[in-house]
Design a protein around this nucleic acid. Sequence first.
DNA 1: GATGAATGAGTATTCATTCAT
DNA 2: CATGAATGAATACTCATTCAT
Lengths: 196, 196, 196, 196
Amino acid sequence: MGRKSKADVRKKEILENFYIILKEEGFENASIAKIAKIMDVNPSLLIHYFKTKEEMVVSFVSFLLGRYEIAFKEKMVGSQSPEDRFYNILDIMFSEDWLNFSDQTVFYACYYLSSRHERIKERFNLMYKLFKDLLVPQAQSWIDAGIIKNEDPENVADFLIIMNEGLTYYDKLMSDADGFRKRAKFLKSAVIKALT
Amino acid sequence: MGRKSKADVRKKEILENFYIILKEEGFENASIAKIAKIMDVNPSLLIHYFKTKEEMVVSFVSFLLGRYEIAFKEKMVGSQSPEDRFYNILDIMFSEDWLNFSDQTVFYACYYLSSRHERIKERFNLMYKLFKDLLVPQAQSWIDAGIIKNEDPENVADFLIIMNEGLTYYDKLMSDADGFRKRAKFLKSAVIKALT
Amino acid sequence: MGRKSKADVRKKEILENFYIILKEEGFENASIAKIAKIMDVNPSLLIHYFKTKEEMVVSFVSFLLGRYEIAFKEKMVGSQSPEDRFYNILDIMFSEDWLNFSDQTVFYACYYLSSRHERIKERFNLMYKLFKDLLVPQAQSWIDAGIIKNEDPENVADFLIIMNEGLTYYDKLMSDADGFRKRAKFLKSAVIKALT
Amino acid sequence: MGRKSKADVRKKEILENFYIILKEEGFENASIAKIAKIMDVNPSLLIHYFKTKEEMVVSFVSFLLGRYEIAFKEKMVGSQSPEDRFYNILDIMFSEDWLNFSDQTVFYACYYLSSRHERIKERFNLMYKLFKDLLVPQAQSWIDAGIIKNEDPENVADFLIIMNEGLTYYDKLMSDADGFRKRAKFLKSAVIKALT
DNA sequence: GATGAATGAGTATTCATTCAT
DNA sequence: CATGAATGAATACTCATTCAT
């Protein structure tokens, strides 16, 4: 347990500034020098902490996805009845809030990286595994409570994730709030029809 | 009066080689020099044709999405009955073939770019508009034939696109053929339940 | 004398556009491509007419200095008495008009070139020789008329040119109209005191 | 705490080599790479110290004009009587030594730059201000001693500078030692006649 | 006379990284 | 822990020029 080492604090600080640069300059223009500049430190210092840029990128992805995981976990908890939770989770997953939790530029840059970098891909898989680990018991509870049909709860979890990611992907492009609401509403009702 | 223009042929040739480099080296490592090298021409020739790298990238995205459009259009045609076409389109959209039509690395690099580049974003929107223009009449024919419920056909089109993109997004990460088939099957049946 | 060939017209046109580019972009940023662009022709065309850029630069210097020569010659003519002409020429040579006849950027770029390029240096010498050829007879007429002391008329011509160039050089830097007038007045009276 | 800064030494060293290249290759052909080459260091090192080429050029002009300032100041000192100093200064300012102190190519390249670059222009103005700050008290002392007429000492200073620059400008073109001596003599006597 | 293809050398600058202090 | 020196490879792009049409 103990106190965080200075290195850990510094690393976190660096990753936070990496995020800022990624957002402002884009993945292809993000450099160690630029991060160092806004931190007002010497570029070598970042190398000192991460050894290589690649290591820094991998750490960053983990840092970023960690934030999604925490956010998702927080949304998931709730002591309502299974039925309330079912509708609640649907509301959350198809809400503008959740859509906008992520900065598209940064997130999809990382997603893209997963296709070229095994460790990053694994980190993404870990996140979705965690999402499923949270959703599967929920799905089971809905089945048990007779809210949804007797399906494989894993399928239900995948289904929810896929629809959510599809919607996010699509609406980031559309950037049209009215359209989003229309689509989110339709999707939600489709989920209900398909599952119940 | 002057020399014959080779621009159209040459540009296409360059974009095809751009694709190769993007696949091999990744977006962040793709450079004009590398493309020129595998083409065995001088780097300045690419500049001669595209003026700037940015222009080349924009052209490339258009070139790439154009190929998706052609492929999608081809899959869509068919002289079957509305009912046959309904199931046929579902089969296509949730098939491994369609999933693998795109190279993940190249496609998502472009998708990422859309978040930073207005013209690229517009090009993506154009593609999805075209997809919808193809799907909406189909949806209408299914409604008319009583195969699916009387929904807004635009919603139906969006729904299909979103589920398809969600599945693609998710399964590119998972890279597990059995899982894909399981999920695709579930999604297809969910679509049917939700719409009929 | 015959009509001017198309080549001559085109060349002049090119040199005029060269002047524009030199003024706008500076000597170090002036390129054949940029000239061609504002002329809306192909860069190769300029090479076609001048063979090399060096040749074009040499031609340009000649073209530019030719304009000074014409302007100077025009100012020099006049059917007044020697005395009137003496004061008139002083007025002209120390006037804001003459100071501003030249664009500093373009002229001093050429002057600089003269230090590195023999043919350009010779062209400058030719211009000053012409100035002297115009001034020496004037000086002689002033001596003959007893307006100025019996000096070597060549010295007088050199003196006038040097003071004029010194003033121009200095005031291009100062860019302050009041200061210029003060200095011009002082110089004029100094010339009169020194010569009469 | 970190490595010792070599910036001052290194920068000076770079500017000295910049001078060599400017002289050898001319302003338009002087490049960072060429300077680095004769220094036997990596081009990026020059960027490390100056950030941009523009910054390096600005620094260079300051470095160059600084040398003129020192040389001028040195010539100016002297414990003679006002009268001795008057003739001494004239001798210096119209001497071959002073004419040849500057390399024409490098100096006029910088002068040309002043017409396109505000900071460089300001640096030139600073130098001439310094020259005047040295000359004005001298002029005052000559007036006080009755050597020259009661003129505005600032006018006298400007006059000397202008004649000197005019002579330099003109004789760099002429490159003829006999002519120079003739003109210098004439100018000196003209100054004396005009002022006394 | 004029265009466009193509080249090859060159530009400033950025990059990640290593190492001495 | 942190800085600054230094490198070497890479970047997009510009340049003058040649040549085929």
